[in-house]
Design a binder for these strands. Structure first.
Lengths: 192, 192
DNA sequence: GATTTTCATAGACAAAATGTCGCTGTCAAT
DNA sequence: ATTGACAGCGACATTTTGTCTATGAAAATC
């Protein structure tokens, strides 16, 4: 799993080992379930000594934190790119929300499982906050155009959006995800 | 923690021990976090022998499953009672959704944490399904009155509701929870 | 009322997992 | 070429786990 001899620089090597640990751990979690994953198993499957593993992470939870942080960061980059594109604020909002819903849909109930479990972690919470900020700011933009209800703050609406869209994890088809986005957006519009 | 001598019937005693195990485990989880909770700790804190604990539950995960099942059952009874009261379908829907949101609000992020983690369990999934069914049926009733959008099935709308309302766990005040319910309901109404 | 059966409890043991220390060998800087 | 830094891992003490068995109290039977 991990190159035995260091062909690259040492820093690059450490990064590669770290990645391998993260991937291996995630594989084990999806295969055997969360509770049965041990440091011993991870080390063996990753092809490194158990003591070495402890040089990288203090325990299984820390590995899962790191894995989840990596996931969130990737998704954040994706969503930030969508948000930064040219166009109407309303359209960009829809694009971002749909992208988030599709991510939730792909990872199914597994991802939700962990994201909830790991909420307590400092860095994960921070990444989640960035996600919330991104939506909040976009909602504030939409508010400028008058296409947003004004009886609830963008902050609270962003919180509503993220939770509502995690429902995509339970849906069977991408069509259903589309409908979910539509419904969620309907909650945001100004009320007569 | 647990009565040493059996003053009650034996069945009653077992139930009491079981409850004590559930409560103790939950206390430990909230105090020290999920990963650090062991069967040894639980047995010690509950005041029973470790081997005895294994007669009740095979591992920590099973205890958490049971705890969560108990929680869901309690909430289900509460919500079912609200649903069965007399009155307009729309009003009962609002009452049920608000009650669910308040439950999510009270347990904060902790409860959500676990409810997600434990989704894989058979019985918990079943209980969650009952919750979904309850909302779905109520939504179908509302549909009869024409106060529900008809481009999405009650099934999917129920899924949307439950997830959107778990956002209450992140909210600071019950006023904010009220607003969340309002927004969520807005997503359900027929679109012009 | 005496007995037998049932079963809750916990002591004890083996196996597994954990966390750490120290030695070995490689990389990088001087 | 020498040396400091550090990745890797063997090995040990400790903790946790899972199970087996003995003890004794409650319930059932006679």
């Amino acid at each position: 799993m991990v190159p035995k001899l260091w062909n690259e620089t040492i820093e690059e090597h450490r990064r590669a080992v770290r990645e391998a640990i993260l991937d291996t751990t995630w594989t084990l979690v999806t295969e055997r379930g969360l509770a049965s994953v041990t440091m011993s198993q991870i080390a063996e499957k990753a092809g490194i000594g158990r003591a070495t593993l402890y040089k990288y992470f203090p325990d299984v939870e820390a590995i899962l934190f790191a894995w989840h942080e990596r996931q969130i960061t990737r998704h954040l980059e994706h969503l930030a790119a969508l948000r930064g594109q040219p166009g109407e604020a309303g359209e960009r909002l829809e694009a971002v929300l749909e992208a988030f819903a599709l991510v939730s849909h792909r990872r199914g109930s597994h991802g939700v499982e962990l994201s909830a479990l790991l909420h307590r972690d400092e860095r994960v919470a921070q990444a989640q906050q960035q996600l919330l900020d991104l939506i909040r700011d976009l909602l504030a933009e939409v508010a400028q155009t008058g296409d947003l209800r004004d009886d609830v703050t963008p902050e609270e609406l962003a919180n509503y959006c993220l939770h509502a869209l995690t429902a995509a994890g339970n849906l069977p088809s991408t069509d259903a995800v589309r409908r979910l986005v539509t419904v969620t957006l309907a909650g945001l519009r100004p009320q007569r």
